[in-house]
């Protein structure tokens, strides 16, 4: 059980900023699992973590295996096309956030706000509390809405949405 103690070499590895280049190879193991061959070692499962999920979704991706960072992908676009496809697929799976396409109605009831929406093609009624805190722009164009269960939803390009829809939540922004 005792974990391997920190040698200086280990320490160096831990604090080093390592960029992964296209010499490493990602393989989609299916079922949402990913493996990575790096320095002739195969790591699995590998998790991809966006370090700047909102501003740079396709850059600064940390690759983690068993709580150890193996390295950081500076830019997905620098990888071969097939690898890009695997990475993007994995990221979109991991970061899947339902998108609100339409807001049907917003009703305030006590300290709750019930919002009827069409999200990913399905009608749903969301419930949030204190909309002022739970709806906000996370970048200059997109809104993020968090409901009472801490599910998160996206509204893409809010300013380009129909005026009617904008009006419904405008006052909470």
């Amino acid at each position: 059980m005792p974990k391997q103690m920190m040698t200086d070499d280990n320490m160096e590895k831990l604090i080093a900023y390592r960029e992964l280049d296209s010499s490493c190879v990602f393989v989609d193991d299916g079922d949402g699992f990913l493996s990575l061959t790096l320095d002739e070692t195969v790591y699995r499962p590998v998790d991809l973590i966006r370090l700047l999920p909102y501003d740079r979704p396709d850059e600064y991706i940390s690759c983690v295996c068993k709580e150890q960072e193996l390295g950081i992908i500076r830019r997905i676009a620098d990888f071969p096309e097939e690898q890009q496809r695997i990475l993007q697929h994995q990221l979109s799976f991991r970061y899947y956030t339902p998108v609100i396409e339409k807001i049907i109605s917003v009703r305030e009831k006590m300290w709750f706000v019930f919002i009827k929406v069409v999200v990913d093609g399905q009608k749903k009624e969301l419930c949030t509390r204190d909309l002022y805190h739970n709806i906000r722009f996370y970048n200059s164009t997109d809104l993020l809405l968090t409901d009472v269960d801490e599910n998160r939803y996206l509204i893409r390009n809010f300013r380009q949405q129909p005026a009617k829809m904008q009006q419904k939540i405008e006052i909470y922004l």
Binding site: D31, G32, F33, R94, Y95, Y96, T97, P98, D149, N151
Partner: peptide, 25 residues
Amino acid sequence: LVNTARLLIKQNGRKRALCRFASGG
């Protein structure tokens, strides 16, 4: 995962995903 989660199972030595749901679940 980030806004979602999965129920995983190890069956006969093999890991696989059973189902997927929003974090609220």
